[in-house]
Design a protein around this nucleic acid. Structure first.
Lengths: 210, 210, 210, 210
DNA sequence: GATGAATGAGGTTTCATTCAT
DNA sequence: AATGAATGAAACCTCATTCAT
């Protein structure tokens, strides 16, 4: 391994260290109440160092969204790559993938929508906006492909695959957001997993033929 | 009408005027980038005046959530109050109610989740936290009642009504959030209504017997 | 006097108060070592208040240049307005005007050239760049007019009036800069006035016929 | 050549390399907006290395002034060393020397005055302050000598030679500063050379007898 | 000698909130 | 009741300088 490569790897490790710290802090306090100082402290680095790895607070933040999308993509590829089996198994695999995504970062989705303000988007480097755009498209595409399979095999209702994928993803994130919100407000017990289970069941019934 | 009452009414009018302005500004810039100055200007009032009607920025903000919940509640009551008819009609009425809520304030849901940060909740007066809590419970309750009806009549699958209501609400807000987000990022055309239609169809298929 | 007018006047007074403080601080420390905190303290205001009157540090700074140009302009108008007399008297009046400008703000010229970095110019509002531009043109114009008079009357050498004015102004500011610099470096006594006297004498001899 | 000497020479070469880069950067951005990183990049060295050759930013900066003074000194010595000729030829030679100085570094004079802030001077090592002091004195001395010659020969007006030299230098740097400044602000064409010509002509007329 | 990642003090700037009018 | 100038704490961010490699 060349020296240059080692450096690059070291740099990547640092970025991850910062992202992990940032995730904790953002999750805990939300975007606007979290300060760069908090994140630096959590990462056991100085504030200045954060700026060596991320252009500004907004950009650091968006890399978190990117990260969860990347993880989602990896899991979805996995589902797609599995030896072809029946629709039922595939939908099941899809469900499990979503559970994993949730485990990977149960709270970040809450803040993920912070990015939508166009004011915020303007400050991001086009590169990252582009990446986020591409990744979410790809992820949706993979999901759509899975549904399309089922539709072609006359196992699923003939909706547009892209729309079904959109709804699937909306349902998933909507539940996480809402259940988390309820928990925050009245400290209820964590019914999320059960709710998610039921939701998937309803959804799959809803798109299945017979 | 007593003088006291007139004053109270006047005061309420002012509050609404501020809330309308705040909605526009928050929707446009997101919570953290919106300033009290922006809101004051939009409301054609001074910054100081805002504080005569709302304790602080967080509280002003949460009244917006309260407002949409109140509207939701009004529409739901309406659905419940309708002369009892078949499940299909009631689900249809429910669907229409949701469209109305969306028309009433298509974007505020995006920011509504800002509130969930427990740091934010701490700064709100207990009174408003309480109101939000009550209202969302009631709204969910009405929805649950509607589903329960169908379940009792053996027209709907025997899930827990509360859970079905939760999922229904999550699906609705998830789609709004996601579709809006897509539109922001790549300026796609507005497919929201169609997606929402399909989503409701799938959902209703999913919970229906036969 | 209307209330609006009074407010405007009050606002102008505040601006001047800040400019006076800023002049002292910039003169004392130079542009980059002077902080907004220093200026605020000197003006007995808070840092935030400075930003109510000036967009940023660079802009606050440039208003100082504007101020000296305005004073220069006033004095020059005075010279031009004087009942027409011989060239000698007018040049003398011009000389005195320059002495006054020097008294008005003996050190600010040192820093005035800070502005020239195009990086700095970019951050200024076009309005102020425009004003500075116009004022310095006008001032140069008045000087050129005076020289033109003498040239037409065959009392001065036939150089282009604009160029003569440029040289006159350069000589003046060059001497102030250089003498101040010498004083700073080796604390020599203040020969500026004498040097300025001799310089003007040489210059006037240099442009006079016979 | 001993090894020690070779090392010293190598070290000197490096210093010059840094100074050349620094000149470019300072000229481009002005003192305070230029960063050590910018300079290092321009010099194709690392930031740390700069500190092996110069104590700090201020010191690096002042060596640039030193450098132009050194060049000025070399050219002036040349003028003085020329086989004695008439005053006219000598003044002409002096004029050409100044043109050369201007060619050597047309913009650095703008920033040269940054140094005058006493706050800046305090941070410089006494050594360099001393050198700058000595060099500028010597340069002025050579100029004064030339003028003294003319005065003794009854060709120039009997002003104090030192003062005449001061004025000459002020005129020169004043014009460079002012013309550069005008060019920056309104992008006018480069009349500097012409203006400089006229200025010298006026100055020489002004100090000449008859 | 050279590097450049890391530091952290300190700068500029913002903005929720207050309070005299 | 309404104002809006003023505050000042605290945020983001920069950058000269250091030091382990």
């Amino acid at each position: 391994m060349g020296i240059r490569e080692r450096k690059e790897r070291e740099r990547e490790r640092r970025r991850q260290q910062i992202l992990v710290a940032a995730k904790r802090v953002f999750t805990d306090k939300g975007f606007s109440k979290a300060t760069m100082y908090d994140i630096a402290k959590e990462a056991e680095l100085s504030q200045g160092t954060l700026y060596l790895y991320f252009k500004n607070k907004d950009e650091l933040y968006s890399y978190l969204s990117l990260r969860i999308l990347q993880y989602l993509m990896i899991r979805l590829e996995h589902v797609r790559a599995e030896p072809v089996s029946g629709v039922t198994q595939r939908l099941n695999a899809l469900k499990n993938a979503m559970y994993d995504v949730y485990e990977f970062d149960p709270l970040i989705l809450i803040n993920m929508f912070h990015m939508q303000s166009s004011e915020t988007l303007k400050k991001l480097s086009p590169d990252i906006v582009d990446q986020i755009d591409k990744l979410s498209r790809s992820a949706l595409k993979v999901m759509a492909d899975i549904f399309e399979d089922g539709i072609k095999n006359k196992r699923l209702v003939d909706y547009k695959p892209v729309v079904v994928a959109d709804i699937f993803w909306s349902l998933f994130s909507g539940i996480i957001l809402w259940e988390t919100s309820k928990k925050m407000i009245d400290g209820e017990k964590d019914f999320l997993k059960t709710t998610l289970d039921t939701a998937f069941e309803i959804f799959f019934r809803g798109i299945s033929l017979n």
